Amino acid sequence: MTRVAAIDCGTNSIRLLIADRSAGVLSDVLRRMEVVRLGQGVDRTGEFDPIALERTLEATGRYAELCREHGVEAVRFVATSATRDARNRQVFIDGVRDALGVEVEVITGHEEAALSFAGAVSILDGSAPADRLVVDIGGGSTELVLGAGETPDASISLDIGCVRMTERHLHEDPPTQAQIAAAAADVRAALDEAAEVVPLVRVGTIVGVAGSVTTVTAHALGLPSYQPDRINDSRLPIEKVRAACADLLAMPRADREALGFMHPGRVDVIGGGALIWAEVLARVAAEVESAGGDLTEAVTSEHDILDGIALSVSV
C-alpha cells in the first residue's frame, strides 16, 4: 500500500486527494477543495492575474502542509485549462515548485479527458451500457470522452467552461435572454466540433463529473445541503436535470447564495456550468435518438480527474 496525493488545479478550483493506493484501488484519507479562480480574466487577457496567482499559491502551501502531516509518499500536481492558456504560466510553475517541491504537469486536453474518464467510470458496474460518455465541465474547458470498459477511444477538449462562459457572456444578474442565447451559441458550436471527433450516436450511458454537474444534481435532488453520498452515482431523468439547469441559470445571485448545497465560490459561475450541461445533455440525447437509440437519464459521479490522477501517481 502506498499513500499518494493528487492535486488538480483548474480554472476555478484547486483540489487535493490524499489516498492509500493498493492494487489499483484507492482508499480516501482526505479530500479538500478551495475555489481560487486561478483563471480569472485569462480568457480576456491571456495571462494569470497576480492576485489569482497569490490565492492559488497560498492554497498550494496549505496542501503541502497536509501532505506532510499525512505522510504522503508521492505527489502528482496537474494543471489544466487556465494554465494551458496563460502566457505567464512559468511564474505559477515556479511558485508551486517552491511550495510543494514537485513539478507542475500542464496536461493536454486529451490527457485531462483520459484521467477524468478513469476516475468517473470507477463507480459504474458491469450492468451499464458499454459505451460511456464522460463529460467533465471545468472552469475553462469541457472534456467529452467516450469509451467502453476502462479505456477511452475518443475524446475532445472544448474551450467552454463555467468561468469562461460567465466572463464572456453572462454579465447581468440574472443573465438576459440575449446573453444566454449568445453563450448557448458558443456551446452549440463547440458541440458541433465535438460531434466530428466523438461518435455521440454510440452513447449508452452519460456520466457528468466536477462541481457544476454535482451542484446541478444537488438542486435536481432538492438537497438541503451538499451531500456527496446522495449525489454520487445518482441517476436522474435528463429532462429533470435540464429543468434544474434552467432554474439555476434564471436565479438571481441572492437566491443562489441561499441554497444550502451551493459552495460560495461557485455562486457566480454556476449559471454558465448549468447552461453547458443542459446543452450537452440535449445534444447527446438527440444524437442517440437520431440513430434509433434512447438516452433518458444522466449519471453523476463524485469521482473524476482527481481520482484518475491519484491512480496514476508514479512512486
Rank of each mutant, 00 (worst) to 15 (best):
L311P: 05
S314T: 15
L158N: 01
L16D: 12
A250V: 08
D8G: 05
L191T: 05
E172L: 07
R253L: 12
I51D: 14
A183M: 02
D98V: 15
D8A: 04
P50F: 07
R202N: 14
G46F: 06
Q40V: 08
G265T: 13
G292F: 00
M1H: 09
D247V: 09
A250K: 01
A79L: 00
A114L: 00
I107D: 13
V269E: 12
L144R: 07
R87Y: 03
R32Y: 01
G138S: 12
D8I: 07
E112C: 09
L100T: 03
G61L: 12
A184K: 02
Q40D: 14
A194C: 07
G222T: 00
S290W: 05
V288D: 03
V36E: 04
R55A: 12
F117W: 08
L248H: 11
E239D: 15
R84F: 02
V96N: 08
E73L: 09
V96R: 03
V75P: 04
I156A: 05
E65V: 11
T83R: 00
I14R: 01
L223S: 05
D159P: 12
V201L: 00
A120S: 04
G149N: 13
R266G: 04
A114M: 03
D131L: 02
R256K: 15
L133F: 12
I305W: 00
S116E: 07
T215M: 10
Y63L: 08
R242D: 04
H171V: 06
E196I: 00
E150Q: 13
R97A: 14
E112W: 08
G109H: 06
